[in-house]
Computed example of a mutant assay.
Amino acid sequence: MRTTARIAALTAAGLLALTSLTACANDAASTTADTGGGAGGKGSGEHVKIMVGGLDKVIYLPAMLTQRLGYFKAEGLDVELLSEPAGVQAETALVSGQVQGAVGFYDHTLDLQVKGKSVESVVQFSQAPGEVEIVSTKAAGGIRSPKDFKGRKLGVTGLGSSTDFLTKYLAIKNGVQVSEFTPVAVGAGPTFISALQKGAIDGGMTTDPTVATILDKKAGRILLDMRTPEGSRKALGGPYPSSSLYMQTDWVNSHKDTVQKLANAFVRTLQWMSTHSASEIAGKMPADYSQGNKALYTEAIKSTLPMFTKDGVMPDGGPQTVEKVLKAFNPSIKNARVDLDRTYTTEFVEKATG
């Protein structure tokens, strides 16, 4: 971690912690429009491409909200937001050089490091996964905890995704081996819900607004709720930094001015979110995200808001929790030394908040 003298001093002192209701959730999408809070568009400022692991998932809401509030444009940036249905695909786009940044789970930075890729989180959006383990109404009687995962088909957004990582950890933590259940890549939103209703999966891990839709349809019930820091600690043993803006370290080092502008914009959004209601936030988002049910979409945002940080700073103990989770089932990480200090930086958010 690269940080200022202030944080270094504190460290030395020991003070060291659906996808959508929209049908476009599973299609690649892009936007450069600054509407709802500021004008702008492609060609107005320095162009930066960011891939999001599901642009209209509530857990990644700061990406689109920053665009809608006009904060990218205020920093002199023309940010093109692209979307893939799963975080693992956003990761692939980043390391292949298709985009300059990715909005996805912080855990990818650890996984990539042991594969020889240097990637770091530069703005930490969250302090909890924002994920919910759902079980279908039909299977609910036989799945009362992760101990009952054995022999089950469990939905994840994609194999190798963060939902896949977390599902495997919950199983192992509760005495079920990875080989004893079947992960099924079903995406999120309509595809997840359809798989649940048709019995293609017995349960699975997903986020809002998919969760809100499932509960509204009475298609399933919540087994584990990790949308709050408290839920994260209960399920995973500590804060679990998840959604973030992460970038290749070489690019960060060679484009510090641009990264600082991105950090300024995102931190400003996180601060705005902390002082506005779910209804006000929903009102800033694209109309089709609510798919005609504004109340349900607002409720989905309200349920997920506790996961977000107010300043973009990595929570104390968060990287250690993520490493513990990954080491429990990932052989390449379990048998490797991970340098956590190289998986994130607070250099830019400190300047943005200071």
Rank of each mutant, 00 (worst) to 15 (best):
G158T: 01
Q113W: 07
H108N: 08
Q248R: 14
G312E: 08
D34Q: 15
Q260A: 05
G116A: 06
G231L: 01
G97F: 06
R2H: 08
M226N: 09
S126P: 09
G312K: 01
S83G: 15
A265H: 10
L154K: 06
A263W: 02
A28E: 09
H276G: 05
T157D: 03
K138H: 12
Q124N: 14
K324M: 10
K153A: 15
G160Y: 10
D107A: 09
S194R: 14
P331V: 03
L154G: 05
F105H: 05
D107L: 00
N253S: 04
K256P: 06
A25I: 06
L340V: 12
Y169V: 10
L159G: 06
K138C: 04
R68W: 08
A39R: 11
G292D: 00
T167R: 10
A336G: 12
G354N: 14
A90N: 07
D164Y: 15
S162H: 07
F165E: 15
T258Q: 03
S83H: 11
A171L: 09
L10H: 13
T4F: 01
L61P: 03
L305I: 12
L77G: 10
P62F: 13
G220P: 08
A139V: 00
G199I: 05
L170P: 14
G14N: 12
A287E: 15
Y169A: 07
L326Y: 11
A29N: 13
I214R: 08
A352T: 07
V95W: 04
S126Q: 06
L326I: 12
T275I: 13
D250V: 00
L94F: 00
D341I: 05
V58N: 11
E84K: 12
E46V: 01
T32L: 08
T3P: 01
F181V: 02
I214A: 09
Y344W: 15
L15C: 11
L223C: 06
V313M: 07
S20Q: 14
K327E: 10
L270P: 08
P331Y: 09
V325E: 03
G76L: 07
M64T: 15
D288C: 01
S242F: 02
P306E: 07
I193S: 11
K327V: 01
P239S: 09
K334L: 06
L305K: 15
F266N: 08
M273S: 02
L305S: 01
T35I: 08
Q127N: 01
G38K: 03
A12F: 03
E133R: 00
N253D: 13
A74R: 10
A128V: 01
L82W: 11
A8W: 03
Q67R: 11
K218D: 12
S96E: 11
A219L: 13
T275C: 02
P319H: 09
Y297W: 15
P331S: 08
Q100P: 09
G36S: 13
M314L: 11
T321C: 10
I301C: 12
L340M: 12
A12C: 04
G292N: 05
G40S: 07
V114W: 05
V58F: 04
T157N: 14
D56Y: 15
G318P: 12
K153Y: 11
P331N: 12
L10I: 01
N253K: 14
A188F: 05
S121G: 02
V132G: 09
L65D: 13
F105T: 04
F308M: 04
K57C: 11
